[in-house]
């Protein structure tokens, strides 16, 4: 009897491991191994792995380095701007698309096109739009009689510019960072639209019919049926978008002016890791920042999932 139970348990374990092995093939060499390798690198000093074993000194240097804190601030600002805006915009468009009957497919493709286009290629086009001398956006401002801006080259805070100098220039995200965020919102909201449309289409028709019989108005349907039933979709999108925004690299790399031209206000953590690791050759320090970023993302995701337990409704 005992042998049979154990036999069954081993058999189940064997099947489970066999089923999981394909994902291990991807996870271990491409995610777990690099993570451990990065940790190993972070324990060494010098440039390009030429120094001595320094233990956890690189982690201490990260915490002491003002550039790390500056880039963490930029990363947080970026996430705070892009995640809510992308999701709210994506939901609004998806909601409107779900209510129309004609041209739905065309519009869905139209909104999805930026998402499937190469980030660097479209970023180059936006860079031309943002050009302070001959860019489209300054032409528009000029046409409307508004003061022209330096866009991607403007390190002063957006609130300082909007309030005409009342808010100190160091406060809040810089105009340059807002420009990169706007580009990212345009580039990714199509994904949110498609996922929200899919979520809306899974809501059973009976709920709508019952609500209509009870005389519910569209806003009541939205707030009492659609939004609560879409919470799993929101959770998925918030998680994905948050991780994506914290790890954003291409838009920053393509749009940030080189050198100190925006006073570090467009250097997020990924760009900081890249420049320290590849440009300046501090493999140990760069890896330590990467480990910090991983821990930061994991902690945020964990908090998010804990929070979601209370507020996410499943049908």
């Amino acid at each position: 009897m005992l042998f049979s139970k154990r036999h069954k348990r081993n058999s189940d374990l064997f099947s489970a491991l066999i089923m999981l092995s394909p994902s291990f093939f991807v996870l271990i060499p491409f995610f777990i191994f690099p993570l451990f390798y990065a940790f190993q690198l972070s324990l060494w000093g010098g440039k390009r792995n030429t120094g001595n074993f320094v233990g956890l000194k690189n982690y201490w240097m990260v915490l002491q380095n003002p550039l790390f804190w500056q880039s963490l601030k930029v990363t947080i600002y970026y996430a705070l701007i892009t995640v809510p805006t992308t999701l709210i915009l994506g939901f609004c468009i998806a909601y409107l698309l779900s209510k129309i009957t004609r041209g739905k497919s065309f519009l869905r493709i139209l909104f999805f096109v930026p998402y499937v286009t190469s980030t660097v290629a479209v970023a180059m086009v936006w860079r031309i739009f943002y050009n302070p001398q001959a860019g489209l956006f300054n032409h528009i401002l000029y046409f409307w009689g508004l003061p022209i801006q330096r866009w991607l080259l403007e390190p002063r805070g957006i609130l300082h510019i909007i309030t005409g100098g009342i808010v100190p220039p160091q406060f809040g995200p810089s105009l340059a960072l807002v420009c990169i965020s706007l580009f990212d919102i345009w580039h990714t909201f199509g994904f949110a639209v498609v996922v929200f449309i899919a979520g809306l289409s899974t809501i059973p028709k009976e709920y709508y019919e019952s609500a209509q019989i009870d005389g519910a108005r569209p806003l009541q349907i939205l707030f009492h049926i659609e939004l609560p039933l879409l919470t799993p979709t929101w959770l998925f999108l918030v998680t994905v978008q948050l991780i994506r925004s914290l790890q954003s690299f291409s838009s920053f790399y393509a749009l940030s002016p080189s050198g100190g031209r925006t006073m570090g206000t467009t250097e997020n953590l990924m760009l900081h890791i890249y420049s320290q690791f590849y440009e300046y050759g501090y493999w140990g320090y760069g890896s330590a920042v990467a480990i910090f970023l991983s821990i930061f993302i994991m902690t945020l995701t964990f908090i998010q999932w804990q929070w979601a337990r209370r507020y996410v409704f499943y049908q």
Binding site: P155, G259, G260, R261, M263, G264
Partner: peptide
Amino acid sequence: RDMVESAELE
């Protein structure tokens, strides 16, 4: 060098 230019801009 980049930091000095940042500071100058500031």
